[in-house]
Amino acid sequence: MILSIIAYLSIGLFVGISVFKAYQFAKMPFHGRMDLYPVPKEKGFEHGGSYYEETAWWTKPHEVSHMREIVEMLKEILFIKKLFENQRPFWWISYALHLGIYFLMAWTILLVVGGLFEVNGISVAANTSSILGLLVYYVTALTGYFGLALATLGSGLLFLRRAFDNTLKKYTTPQEYFNLLLIFAALVTGIFTWGNDLSFGYAREVTANLVTFTPFSANGLLTLHIFLVGIMLIYIPISKMSHYVGKYFTFHKVLWDNNPNLKGSGVEQEIKKASSFRPTTSWSAPHINPPAAPEK
C-alpha cells in the first residue's frame, strides 16, 4: 500500500511540479525582444532571414509557418538536433540517456496497460490468443530492453565523462554528479529487479498491484527501486533537470519570438500593460532617478 502511495504521489508530484514550473515561467513579466536567427517560422528560415529583409515590412503580412516551427521543435525534442550538429561525441551518450528515458516512459505506460489487461482477463503473453495482448507483450519487451539499456548506459557514461573529462569536471558540482547517480541508481535497481523475468510478467504484476492499490509482498530490492524512482521523479522537476520545461520557453518565448509591435497587435497590448507597472525595487547608480515605489 505504501509503495502504491509512493508511486502515485511521485508521478503526481512530477507532473504537478513540472506544470507549476511551466506556469511560473509563463506568467513572468513581458520581456524585451531577444530573437536569434535562424527562426524556424520565418519564410527565410533556410538562410536565417526574417521579415526585416523586406522594405516597409510593417505594411506586409508577416508570413509564418507554424508547421516548420513544430518540425524544428520535434527535431530538437526527438533527436537533440543542436547537440548532434555541434558536439557529436557528447550527443551519443546524451542521446542514449534521453532516448532511453523516452522508451522507459512508453514502457511504463505499457506496463500499466498490460497490468490492467491482466486484471481484466486479457492475457499479455507470447502465447496469448489476444492480438492486443500480443502487441502489448512485445512492445513492452522491446521498450523495456532498449529503455533500460540506453538510459543506464547514457547516465553511467555521462557520469564517467563528467568525472574524467578535465574540462567538464571543473564545471560540475557535486550536486550534478548526484543528479546523474540518482538516475543511474534508479535504473540499475530496476535492471536487477525486473531483469530476472525478461518477459516483464513480474513487472506487469507489480505494476497492476501498484495501480490498483492491491497489497503484495515486496522484497528489499523492489522496495528500494520503487523508493529511488519515486525520489527521482519528485527531484527532477525541482532540479535543473527540469530543462524539458525551460527549453520550451527558451526557444518559443525568447529566441524564436520575433512578433513585432504593430498597432492593434497582442504585443502592443502587452506593452501597454507592462508600461503601467511600477517596480518596487530600483537601481542606485547616480545617473538613474529611481522610480517611486507604489503605495502598499
Binding site: 527549453k247 520557453f249 525595487t281 537601481w283
Partner: peptide
C-alpha cells in the same frame, strides 16, 4: 545589484535571464 537583476527592477529581461541562469547543463557545446 546582483539581487536586483532577479527582481521586478529587471522585468524586461527576467524570463530570459532566469532561463539562461538556471538551466545550463554544462555540456560545453
Amino acid at each position: 545589484g546582483l539581487e536586483k537583476i532577479f527582481s521586478d527592477a529587471n522585468n524586461g529581461v527576467l524570463q530570459p535571464l532566469l532561463l539562461s541562469f538556471e538551466y545550463c547543463a554544462k555540456c560545453n557545446t
